[in-house]
């Protein structure tokens, strides 16, 4: 229930460095805090405020907008069951009910042993594979009640430990940008000129402008010629 550990602090600095403005790192850092503690703690939010140079009120304001950030402890395994329209048509609600009965909690609640939290979730983007659910944001498609029971017991026995990390861990592979390969990330006010490769446009745009000018001149000539011809004709 804490500020970032030294390792995470180093990671936090790296994350912040990827953005032209520090505040952009707030959401990734909230994920990092949740990964560290299992949920987003007040201390983590205060630390994030310091690192991104905003107030803690701004951090909690952002944090509480988004569903994935839990500001209170949740189960080790958060089960999101989609009940939106495509899944509702194909057994999503029944799946949720089954889980509620099996685990003896209502959606939103956590089992007494702290293992599972169930959530009645919105569309998980697996609509053709209904009914679907996620456990700690790892997908299960076209899952039957029996299969759900199998998953729960596999989790309990540790069989799925490699597949499903504990709550808070999202990506187990992180983006890293080696310093030598970085194109360069700068605050917008420091960038004044066009990127260098845009210079390749110059000859083409110049040619087009010239062609357009020539075309307009030709059209203007034609117009004057026509008028002159008319006048001659009238004379």
């Amino acid at each position: 229930m804490a500020r970032f550990t030294p390792d995470n602090l180093e990671l936090a600095h790296e994350i912040i460095s990827r953005y032209p403005r520090k505040k952009s790192a707030v959401i990734p850092l909230l994920h990092l805090g949740q990964e560290q503690d299992g949920y987003v703690t007040n201390e983590a939010m205060e630390h994030i405020a310091e690192l991104t140079e905003v107030t803690a009120a701004e951090v909690i304001g952002t944090c509480t907008f988004y569903e994935m950030f839990k500001t209170h402890p949740v189960g080790k395994y958060v089960i999101n069951v989609c009940t939106n329209i495509s899944c509702q048509l194909n057994g999503g609600e029944e799946l949720l009910e089954h889980l509620e009965e099996t685990l003896d909690i209502r959606s939103g609640g956590t089992t007494a042993d702290g293992m599972f939290t169930i959530e009645d979730y919105e569309c998980l983007a697996a609509c053709t594979e209904a009914p679907c659910m996620q456990v700690n944001y790892r997908y299960f498609h076209r899952i039957s009640n029996d299969e759900v029971d199998g998953v729960l017991s596999d989790i309990r026995s540790g069989k799925l430990a490699d597949t499903i990390p504990e709550h808070g861990v999202l990506q187990r592979v992180r983006q890293t940008i080696p310093a030598g390969k970085l194109a360069g990330i700068a605050p917008p006010e420091t960038v004044v000129d066009a990127p260098v490769w845009m210079a390749r446009n110059e000859p083409i745009l110049a040619a087009r402008a010239a062609a357009k000018a020539a075309e307009e001149a030709a059209a203007a000539n034609k117009a004057t010629e026509a008028t002159e011809a008319n006048e001659k004709g009238d004379a």
């Binding site: 990827r18 953005y19 994920h31 950030f69 990506q171 983006q175 970085l182 194109a183 360069g184 490769w197």
Partner: peptide, 16 residues
């Protein structure tokens, strides 16, 4: 080439 750009992965947190 002289084309340089950084692509940064950013992730959301649950809001349609």
């Amino acid at each position: 080439t002289d084309f340089s750009v950084d692509v940064v992965l950013h992730w959301g947190a649950g809001a349609y």
